[in-house]
Write a protein that binds this DNA or RNA. Structure first.
Lengths: 226, 226
DNA sequence: ACAAAAGTGTTCTTAATACACCCATGT
DNA sequence: ACATGGGTGTATTAAGAACACTTTTGT
């Protein structure tokens, strides 16, 4: 490949991340509000252009740090999106490398504003507004990937708060995988994996019979759950 | 993103494909021999730099057509490789978009030579030489992806010749997945899927008891096999 | 007749599914 | 006392794993 060849001259690489967490038993995705054109004032996924001198993962982490303050995100590169001709106002021919990120929201402080963003929001995955660029497509694709990941025990541990109830866990699964499980069978399955333990505490969430609180064991192997 | 910013100026995108087929019951990958530096005379996967004005899939197909003549390949984008500082002689900061390709070798004519290649070879996956760039890493990763794909019935149909024997099929699985199956259980499993049928023909492969020839039914759904 | 690989059925074990009753809480 | 959601055990069904003998061909 020759540098002077016009065929190759105007290309660039975006890194874009759909960062998920669980809050109140619901799956949330992190959105930022753009300060500048294009798509000024639109909500968008976290991301930006890669520099010449950084590798992909470092670039993704830098963007996430700059725009949200988060620095303990677990990242999975899951897809590539062609941005040829799709991005108004960007004269480069861009390719977007899409990442899925996982954090425990309760252990994570986020910053509200940055150089290019004016707000930030943990948005319920079930109710996402129109996003900038083709970020809705990227998010949909990330949610599909999340369905694959959620059946791994070590992801669950990264995603959930320290203590949680069995119905919360089941709700999470049913929401992401979009199907229902029998309460008894679900419990049996999860307990048989031997990755969580009873804390001997209880909470009453909706003023009904209290549910037991569970927590993950200190070290768990990565097992497939469904 | 501003075009004049030096941070973004020298980036480019490679598309690279590990193209697989089955020959004599063995999994083969398509390699080309390079005509020019860097890595002159080395074997390599099929690929090259993306143009400004084409999208990723078109670029990949163009490269495959140019270097091998193949135009009926089924492509899956499966990973992205960071080539920052890894590629001698290439002044651009490259990212390699990696594809897995599937063809039926017997139905495919390949060309021996092209502008940048001097030879081409269906190489046994179990016995691959040192490749140019970091193509061995990419190939290993493609083989991992192939393990996921091989359990889908429609991939099998794309990969295998029109007629095949049960031991050939089993060998293929055992080679890719790196484990052994019981002959009777394997047969039972495959037949229960209802995607292949008996041709009432037989072949003797090694001068032993002949095996039955099977073929795929005309239309099969995509089912998970293991 | 013997070596080499192919074909075939049954039993056992394990995992997944279906299902009904009692319990603790707030109003 | 009642409405709401949480907790528990058993019986059935389906899927996967284990296993041995007979058949065909070439030498």
């Amino acid at each position: 490949m020759r540098v002077e060849n016009e065929l190759y001259k105007k290309q660039g690489i975006h890194v874009i991340s759909a960062i998920f967490t669980v809050e109140e038993g619901k799956m949330k995705v992190l959105l930022i509000k753009r300060k500048k054109d294009p798509y000024k004032d639109s909500w968008a996924l976290v991301g930006g252009a890669l520099y010449n001198n950084e590798n992909l993962n470092d670039g993704m982490k830098r963007e996430i740090k700059e725009k949200s303050g988060i620095n303990n995100v677990r990242l999975y590169q899951f897809d590539v999106f062609d941005e040829l001709g799709k991005t108004p106002g960007i004269p480069f021919r861009m390719v977007a490398i899409a990442y899925l990120g996982i954090v425990d929201g309760k252990r994570t402080d986020i910053i509200k504003e940055s150089r290019n963003t004016k707000n930030i929001w943990w948005c319920d995955v079930k109710n996402v507004p129109n996003l900038a660029f083709s970020h809705n497509d990227i998010l949909n694709s990330a949610v599909e990937k999340l369905k694959d990941l959620i059946v791994q025990s070590d992801i669950l541990k990264a995603l959930l708060p320290k203590e949680f109830t069995m119905p919360e866990l089941q709700n999470l699964y049913e929401g992401i995988l979009n199907k229902n499980f029998d309460r008894r069978n679900f419990r049996k399955k999860i307990l048989s994996l031997n990755i969580i333990e009873d804390t001997n505490k209880e909470v009453s969430i909706n003023g009904n019979k209290p549910s037991k609180l569970y927590k993950f064991k200190d070290k768990i192997e990565c097992k497939k759950i469904f």
